[in-house]
Design a binder for these strands. Structure first.
Lengths: 346, 346
DNA sequence: AGGTTTTTGATGTACGTTAATCAAAATTCA
DNA sequence: TGAATTTTGATTAACGTACATCAAAAACCT
């Protein structure tokens, strides 16, 4: 009825506690036949080691390090804030979190930071690393070295494909772009017109993937709407404001806008200033104070959002599971993109 | 550096381990002055009891009972399936789950089931109960009695307001209705026309709340669209098919459809059969095999969804926290309504 | 067969907490 | 002041696992 323990396994397998322990923890000095007997007993009883008791016993502390891009934009600042918040809570779960920041978009600096972790004093080497990856060969190399040293690596928010990272935690940006198109296309149904794309995202990879998904669906399903070449706002509100204003004045047939990066404050100001009629439908990314107000005021129609708190929690859960060599579901880590209208703001 | 333990607290407070234990577990026989000294030491050290060690020691098993409406519709069947799945996993977390089912919409039967739990043999009395509530006075009374017996009660999916339940876990149905209106209104922008509402929900309360939210937003923001009186489909696909077909034939100006309950298969068939042009925009609830296909085929435009797995997990987490008298955030339990288009299907 | 090596068993301690027992000290009351 | 009572301390054994040590048994060599 109750969960079986190592004692039960020992009894059923007809071996001593020590032998069960040796099998369980992969120590050597056990004949293959005996090992198999123990394994069979475990299967028969449905034994699962009690991780809490195990961690208590081995006084395990999960040492986790986060390497984040330093204050490049408000999304990253939020992320850092969230990690700090989780760090406090995580102490409860035997998890000690350290954080370092590196210049954004600088593959070399990021790689150097990761190497530093591996080469630290033994007691300071983390069991796992969470990194917002910059897509560069040096980084791939550094990740591979960490894994070689037995350190689990999770990429957060922005993935590093074709690398040795253990897992990716974040949203599917292609799907996010497709979703934006699905919404905007339906919002602009039955109208001919142009769609402005405001780019200049926080991370090159996200930018590209979102735009890819967006144009896929626009072409396939909403051919009457013509996406324009992206307006590069460089994530800076002033820049976005200036360039979007120009575009709106030059092209009165802009019927929809997809903003896939930062600088939403500028977009909002441009829309208020030029106020074209009928107002274009707007889909943007990331729920912030700015975009929340834009939704409430009816300037934005929808905001696609990734819940960073959820992402950080998820990364920690998965990391602990990886460190314990506990099975972790494949789908875990694929964070869903949330859709907010003014009507379902949290 | 490391987490402080009871030993550290004892040392700092200058008392014995026994006294710390007595304070920690609310046993009596401690003078108020001493108790305060111990509390001060805990605060000073930032002591937090190690729940895992504590549970190990007191061999705690969380006994949780789920009372669900029996096979009333596919949503409830999914829910039951999900609970059974979680029951297997929950064993890992020292949680033993039992399940009972009662006839749907029958407040008396539900109340009787809840009373049975309280009056069971002491070792069978659960520490917490999760119930899909039917809104009735007897149920409120039974919940209140459970709480009086020290049993935590969580309402799942459908709440029991003005009752003694400890928490509610589920979506905000008013907000879901508002969101549906926000989407459908934008999908039907610039068109005059009627909006058909297909009702007959699984639970009266959800039905009412969703419709309320929907009409709120429709009136306020999309006055050019006129919601029709609801088509009562009684959650049965055949009934829905018949009545929606009739409505579509009778009123060619139906430009949007909001289906807030079950029977989506019937809705889909009606739309394919009558195939009005231009096709009406459709927003429905709950992602199932049926509605997924309808999205993929472009018959439905959006589906609002509650993630039952998430809800069940959330209920268990909160319940354990309540049983441990651990603080639990206020916002926890408010499950977000997810929005799916064909472009972001999981 | 004897010796060597490998495999297994027995035992104890630890992790941080709960919980019980019994003795010692402090406090209250007559 | 002495007895009765309350409060505190000291000690011990769990919970399920990890890990170390030493001895015993079994298997492997020549």
């Amino acid at each position: 009825m109750l969960r079986p323990t190592v004692h039960d396994v020992a009894r059923v397998a007809n071996v001593s506690l020590s032998t069960v322990d040796r099998v369980l923890n992969g120590r050597d000095g056990v004949r293959a036949a005996t090992r198999e007997r123990v394994r069979a007993a475990m299967r028969e009883l449905g034994y699962e080691r009690d991780i809490m008791a195990a961690n208590l016993s081995r006084k395990r502390v999960y040492k986790v390090h986060f390497t984040l891009p330093e204050g490049s934009n408000s999304f990253m600042r939020n992320l850092a804030e969230e990690v700090r918040a989780q760090a406090r809570e995580a102490a409860r779960d035997r998890t000690r979190i350290s954080i370092s920041t590196v210049p954004p978009f600088d593959g070399r600096a990021l790689a150097a930071d990761l190497r530093r972790l591996r080469d630290a004093a033994p007691e300071a080497v983390p069991d796992g690393v969470v990194v917002v990856a910059t897509d560069a060969a040096e980084v791939r190399q550094a990740v591979s070295e960490l894994r070689g040293a037995g350190i689990e690596v999770i990429t957060l928010v922005s993935d590093l494909p074709a690398s040795a990272r253990s897992r990716f935690v974040g949203i599917d940006n292609v799907s996010a772009g497709r979703t934006a198109a699905g919404l905007l296309g339906r919002f602009c149904r039955g109208q001919k017109g142009r769609i402005a794309i405001v780019a200049g995202s926080m991370l090159l990879r996200d930018h590209v993937e979102r735009r890819l998904g967006f144009e896929q669906v626009m072409h396939a399903e909403f051919a009457h709407l013509a996406p324009m070449p992206p307006i590069e706002g460089r994530d800076a509100a002033d820049e976005v404001e200036r360039r979007v204003s120009e575009a709106l004045e030059a092209r009165p047939d802009i019927t929809g806008i997809y903003s896939l990066g930062g600088g939403n404050g500028g977009l909002q100001r441009a829309l208020l200033r030029v106020s074209p009629t009928p107002r274009p439908m707007v889909v943007a990314h990331e729920l912030t104070e700015q975009s929340r107000h834009a939704l409430q005021d009816g300037v934005f129609d929808a905001v696609l959002h990734q819940d960073i708190g959820h992402e950080v929690r998820s990364a920690l859960d998965i990391l602990r599971a990886l460190i314990d060599a506990t099975p972790v579901e494949a789908g875990r880590g694929l964070i869903r993109t949330e859709i907010f209208l003014r009507d379902n703001l949290p």
